[in-house]
């Protein structure tokens, strides 16, 4: 019987990759952020996941405006990083879990989620950086993945309500999965930030606190805001919280406990956060 061990959330700011590459974890600018991962390492060593279901967003690597899916689901044997335009060193590749991908896709389409299935998919810093942060010293990732990409680029974006429902449908699908994996749910991106426009640099710690406070006990509270209101509250790129909301949904409807939180301003242009949630009851699948 598969088990959902919990959910891990983190920001995925590209500059974090540079800091890791240069070994700046103890640098005063970076230390308050990286120190938040000691607990993550400890927790992962304890819960030992072997599969990760990851909710993230593409930044113009795998998807362009010619075919922009609202929800894309990976069903590839492997996922590679590629040059995102800056010629940086490539991140490690990921092994896919195609059987689990198709199990989820079957359930999602039956549940009226109109997903785009991706039997090839490049992954960018939004997927790689959370893994570099979680497992900093490995040669190969210890988990296979099923990646979900949520559209945060081309408006209209899916609502917070729809993203929470997507995650919950994934949770329902896991209940009928016959494997015996230990599954960790991952949500990446955010929190509040805005890269573009005259309001660039906008950060809103109060809204971020509202999100962090409610994710464990009352994620439905996050669905009260329309996308437009979310942009107002969290910035044009702060809408990446949609990935967190979907991931929280995949943990199930039941309450969850926050076992770790770190929040720091700023990392690059962003309010950076790291969060660990565990389901209150053991969630078998």
């Amino acid at each position: 019987m598969a088990e959902i061990v919990g959910a891990y959330f983190t920001s995925h700011v590209p500059a974090i990759g540079g800091a890791i590459h240069k070994g700046l974890q103890q640098d005063p600018y970076w230390k308050p952020f990286f120190d938040g991962f000691d607990k993550v390492h400890e927790w992962l060593a304890q819960v030992k996941p072997d599969v990760a279901i990851v909710f993230n967003n593409d930044h113009g690597l795998n998807f362009f405006l010619d075919k922009m899916p609202t929800f894309a689901v990976g069903a590839a044997h492997e996922y590679h990083n590629a040059d995102e335009g800056w010629g940086l060193p490539l991140y490690k590749s990921f092994q896919g879990h195609t059987e689990l991908s198709w199990h989820l896709i079957e359930h999602l389409v039956e549940s009226e989620f109109d997903v785009t299935t991706c039997q090839k998919m490049l992954v960018d810093h939004a997927l790689s950086i959370p893994f570099e942060l979680a497992w900093p010293d490995v040669d190969a990732w210890p988990v296979k993945i099923v990646p979900f990409a949520i559209n945060t680029v081309q408006h209209p974006l899916p609502s917070a309500k729809r993203c929470l429902a997507l995650g919950r449908a994934v949770h329902e699908a896991l209940k009928t999965w016959q494997g015996d994996e230990r599954i960790v749910i991952i949500g990446t991106g955010g929190l509040s930030h805005q890269l573009d426009g005259e309001r660039a640099g906008f950060i809103n710690a109060e809204y971020d606190k509202f999100c962090l406070d409610n994710l464990s006990k009352d994620p439905d509270a996050l669905t009260q805001h329309s996308i437009h209101e979310m942009v107002r509250l969290s910035g044009t790129q702060g809408v990446e919280i949609l990935n967190w909301i979907a991931a929280r949904g995949a943990l199930g409807e039941a309450a969850a406990s926050e076992i770790h939180r770190n929040y720091h301003i700023p990392i690059s242009n962003t309010a950076a956060a790291t969060l660990l949630l565990e389901p209150d009851a053991l969630v078998g699948a």
Binding site: A75, H77, E99, S101, W102, H103, E106, T117, Q119
Partner: peptide
């Protein structure tokens, strides 16, 4: 996996599902 959810096969008919697609990608 997913096969169990499927009803009886249709004679002479091969649904192009995820299992087929994963096998046939190349």
């Amino acid at each position: 996996m997913t096969a169990q959810q499927h009803p009886a096969p249709i004679e002479g008919t091969h649904l192009f599902d995820g299992i087929a697609a994963a096998k046939g990608f190349e």
